[in-house]
Simulated assay, not measured.
Amino acid sequence: GTGDWNDGMNRVGHLGLGESTWLGFFLHGILGDFATLCESRGDTAKAERYRGQVRRLAAALELSWDGEWYRRGYYDDGTPLGSAQNDECKIDSIAQSWAVLSGAVPIRFGDRAIDAVRAHLVRRAIRVVLLLSPPFDTSAQDPGYIRGYPPGVRENGGQYTHAAVWAVMAMARLGSGDEAMELFHMLNPINHSRTPADAERYRTEPYVVAADVYAHPAHPGRGGWTWYTGAAGWLYRTGLESLLGLRRQGASFAIDPCIPALWPEYAIVWRFGRTRYEITVANPEHRCRGVAAAELDGTAVDPAAVPLVDDGGTHIVKVVLGAEPRPLAPSRRAVTTA
C-alpha cells in the first residue's frame, strides 16, 4: 500500500504489493511496546501474539540489508528502493535511523547503517542532513509525487528535518555523544543565522524549526516551510531525552544521557506539578555515556527509576557518569507527520 511516512512516495506500493522497510521497523517497535502494555494489563495471550509478530518482522527485516545499509522498501514488482543498485535514492535515512531506534537489528548492523548516513547524507558544508541521496530526477523509477520537487528540495533529497532529528536520536542511542550533539546544533535554526551571510543563505526565521532545508545547488542551505512542522517537538525531545537523558516513565524518571565527552557537567531544573527537581550530572571521566552512580536527596537511587512525586518540595538529584553504559531498551515514540 501507500501508507508510508513519506507520503510523496505514493506510487511505490500503490498496487498493494510494495513494501516499506521503514514501516516494518516502526511496526516492530510499536508491537513491542503494545506487548508490554498488554502484559501489564494481564492480557498475556495478546502480548505473546504481538511478540510473535515482532520476531517474524525482525527475521523479514533482516533480508532488507543491502550490504552497507538497509533498503528503503520495494516497488510493487519487487524492485528495491534505497539500494546501491538504484541510480537515484540509493540510500534513505529513516530506514537506517529506525533500524536502530526500533531495536530490531544487531548493534553491529545498526552501527554500519548509521555509518552510511554519515558518509552519504550528512553535508556539513551547508549544515544539512539529507533525507535521501541521490534525489529522484531522470531515472525510470516512479516513486510518486516526490519526483515533482526539484532535486535537493524538500523530501526529494533535501533535509526533511523530521527525519534528520531521527538520525540524531539514532546516533545518541549508539552512544555517539559528540556527533549527536554536533548534528543537533546543525539542526538548531539559530545556528543558520549567526552571520549576515548565513542569514542571507537561510532566508527564513531563525527562531522556529524549518520543516525542510534545501540542498539544491542553486539554493544550498536555504530554509523551507516553517511554523507547522512536527520536527519541532521531536527536536525538543531529542535534546531533553536522547542527549540530556531525562525521560519520564510513569511514576518514575530515568537519567541516562549521551553528551559530548568534553562536557564536565550540566544541570536541569524540572518543575513537576508543584514540585521542583534540581538535577546535576557530573562527567569527571569525560565520557559520552554511562551512569556510575545516582542519588536522590542524598540517598543512592537507581538512575533508571528515580521516584517521581508531586509533594510541593524541592528534590536534589545528583548523577555521576563513568560506568560502562548499560544496554537500553528501545525508546519508541509515536510518529507525527510534518
Rank of each mutant, 00 (worst) to 15 (best):
N10V: 07
E62K: 11
A254P: 03
A47H: 00
T79K: 13
V309W: 10
L132N: 07
M9I: 09
L15T: 12
M186L: 14
H162D: 07
D256S: 09
E182G: 03
P217N: 08
W5R: 10
I114G: 04
W270N: 10
R276N: 10
I259K: 02
C38M: 13
P135W: 00
V306F: 01
L187N: 03
K46W: 04
G175P: 01
W98L: 04
K46M: 11
G144E: 01
P150T: 10
N191P: 05
V168I: 14
R154L: 08
G298W: 07
A45S: 14
G250Y: 02
G1A: 13
Y50G: 00
P206M: 11
A218W: 06
R237W: 03
R154E: 01
A294G: 09
R11A: 06
V335H: 14
W22F: 15
L183F: 06
W225K: 12
Y75S: 09
W166R: 05
R41H: 14
S176Y: 10
L183D: 05
F136L: 09
G29F: 10
P196S: 13
A329K: 13
G67H: 07
P80I: 06
D76R: 04
Y145S: 13
A323L: 05
G13D: 02
P330K: 02
L308F: 11
P220G: 11
M186W: 03
L235W: 05
A215R: 08
G3D: 09
